[in-house]
């Protein structure tokens, strides 16, 4: 299957859920120098899945997410996205890097990443942010991108702010804008790295609502979060990461309702 086959024509609708594998990770290892951060993590996300990653600080959640779109190069392991295996070559020093940068760029442009710190481009208005990747990476016509961008901004409740620069928006507005920017690429999978943990408490709700709506409509998502209640509500699958290993995983009711490992029990107690 090629990447473009997987894209539905209507950007505002998620892809038809055929339960195909969107992301498949097997035995992923990542080390930073002497520090092994991921020690063999495996995961499969099918279309429509919402996988929540939970775990304590430093357990490797962000690193795992960043390996999936190769913002970090995994040390070893298999990553298959949209059914495409990513070829890696050894760098001769125990690490590896992607053999084909174009392949990585193509795959990244199908994964909508949302960052903890929003990272909206500061020199562009909100609408410019949203149309940037469609126009300059995916080669969409500007008019078309603007039309889609306006619809997306309306969906996240930011129509009135389309011509405003990020510096003049609240954190919650910036994060909703960042979600619109990620949706604009018609992503196969949305990747969220603690999307609400840089927000003032009163702004968390508006962002979680947008993410929750995306989950309801069947978006495939990978969500790193500290919001346990939210993870329990929206996730179809929860993974508890501890020290670079999946300590326990399963459906949210099971994981939160009757945790097996002692560590997870304690973790749930401390965060709730």
């Amino acid at each position: 299957m090629t990447v473009s086959d997987a894209v539905s024509t209507d950007p505002l609708q998620p892809q038809s859920a055929e339960q195909a594998e969107a992301i498949h990770v097997w035995n992923l290892h990542k080390r930073f120098g002497a520090l092994e951060v991921l020690k063999g993590v495996s995961m499969t996300a099918r279309d429509g899945d919402v996988v929540a990653l939970i775990g304590g600080s430093g357990s490797g959640k962000s690193t795992f997410l960043r390996c999936i779109n190769f913002l970090e190069n995994p040390t070893s392991g298999v990553i298959r996205i949209n059914g495409e295996d990513i070829e890696m070559v050894s760098d001769g020093a125990g690490g590896q890097y992607p053999a084909n940068r174009r392949q990585i760029e193509r795959i990244r442009s199908r994964l909508g990443m949302v960052f903890q710190n929003f990272n909206l481009w500061q020199h562009m208005t909100l609408l410019q942010n949203v149309i940037e990747v469609p126009v300059h990476v995916l080669g969409m016509k500007r008019d078309e991108a603007i039309a889609i961008g306006e619809q997306l901004l309306e969906r996240v409740g930011l129509s009135a702010k389309r011509d405003v620069y990020p510096a003049y928006l609240s954190g919650g507005q910036q994060q909703r804008g960042a979600i619109a920017r990620a949706l604009a690429i018609q992503p196969r999978v949305m990747l969220f790295d603690e999307p609400t943990s840089a927000l003032d408490p009163e702004l968390v709700g508006e962002v979680l609502k947008v993410i929750g709506d995306l989950a309801k409509e069947g978006r495939t998502m990978l969500l790193v979060t500290h919001e346990m209640k939210f993870a329990r509500e929206v996730a179809s699958h929860v993974m508890y990461l501890h020290n670079g290993i999946v300590e326990e995983e399963g459906p949210p009711e099971e994981l939160f309702g009757s945790p097996k490992s002692e560590r997870l029990k304690q973790f749930i107690r401390t965060v709730s």
Binding site: N69, L71, I104, E105, R106, I107, R108, S109, R110, L111, G112, M113, F115, N117, N119, L120, W121, Q122, V133, H136, V137, I185
Partner: peptide
């Protein structure tokens, strides 16, 4: 760094 990382994450050359 985040500004550039966002661009990389979306597949920009």
């Amino acid at each position: 760094k985040g500004q550039l990382e966002a661009a990389r994450a979306f597949g920009m050359r």
